[in-house]
Design a protein around this nucleic acid. Structure first.
Lengths: 155, 155
DNA sequence: CGCAATTTAATTGCGCGCAATTTAATTTAG
DNA sequence: CTAAATTAAATTGCGCGCAATTAAATTGCG
């Protein structure tokens, strides 16, 4: 960040790369936590957590998807998804059925109640956009950088 | 994202703002998870998790800090920090002592072993920078946007 | 002074994330 | 055809994050 270090400046000491304020990952982590926190009151009104909301987005788009493909889309594994999907099923938003062709595969289907949930969720994105207080262009750029970083880390 | 919608394009349907691929927060969340995942092999060699590593950064800088101030710096509360600090203490990196002036306050001090850990951690930031495969300028911009977003959400 | 209000940290409980392992079904190779 | 290898999901266990509550010390107000 800074190239110079003065003798008495404790926070710009020998190892500036080990200072919290110089960590990109900490900023990303804190912003992600804060954004998820901002979703919480909106989503708890729908009886959803943030990961459940993301999962419902995929299922709204792809009812009948299996756990593996869901995990691919969400970058999550069965250790996270299996209990999460059981909770969504317990709430009545989805059903979990074994595939007939391959008994190993678990398919996830939207219920009528899950479909109704979608219309209730439609106001969420706009509400979050307002809370962010950022211009659409800056958000798009942030999103693009995050996607590039994610892709690079997965190589 | 897209302003047009063709009749047969299922993924650009009635509610594009409810598509996973259009979610800034999902990108942020996925990138943050992936980055923390990338730290894991480096940090497990130091017997640290990522939140523990962030916490150690603050303590390396401010030995003797109390839990409240630590929580302020890290954007975490005592529900997260108390057990995390107990684990750092069990590993011998810190000590946790009551303040003499105010018995409610818990002070956290770096141990010799905790100090030694810092020198072992010095190679971590560079290793992560390489893994990210991003230019410094892009990382700086990503960091700035995250900090702006965090600040806006806290207002 | 004395008690209510405030502050600090700890505790409890729940839902992730994810590594590691297990179970069960399917595919592949001999 | 069968045994080994592979694949899909579930299970187990641990460490967060965080809301809500509790416990204990301190402060402030009448």
């Amino acid at each position: 960040m800074s190239l110079s270090t003065t003798a008495c400046d404790q926070s710009e000491a020998e190892t500036p790369q080990l200072l919290l304020k110089n960590q990109v990952c900490f900023s990303l982590y804190s912003a992600s936590n804060a954004l998820i926190r901002s979703y919480r009151p909106l989503l708890s009104a729908l009886d959803l957590t943030y990961p459940q909301y993301l999962t419902m987005m995929v299922i709204w788009e792809k009812s009948g998807i299996n756990v593996k493909d869901l995990g691919h889309d969400l970058h999550l594994d069965s250790g996270t998804l299996t209990p999460l999907l059981k909770r969504l099923e317990a709430k009545g938003f989805i059903t979990r059925e074994r595939s007939d062709e391959d008994e190993r595969v678990r398919l996830v289907f939207l219920t009528t109640q899950g479909q109704q949930l979608k219309s209730q969720a439609e106001s969420v994105p706009e509400a979050i956009f307002c809370k962010s207080q950022l211009q659409m262009a800056e958000l798009q750029q942030l999103k693009a950088s995050c996607e590039k970083l994610l892709a690079n880390l997965q190589k």
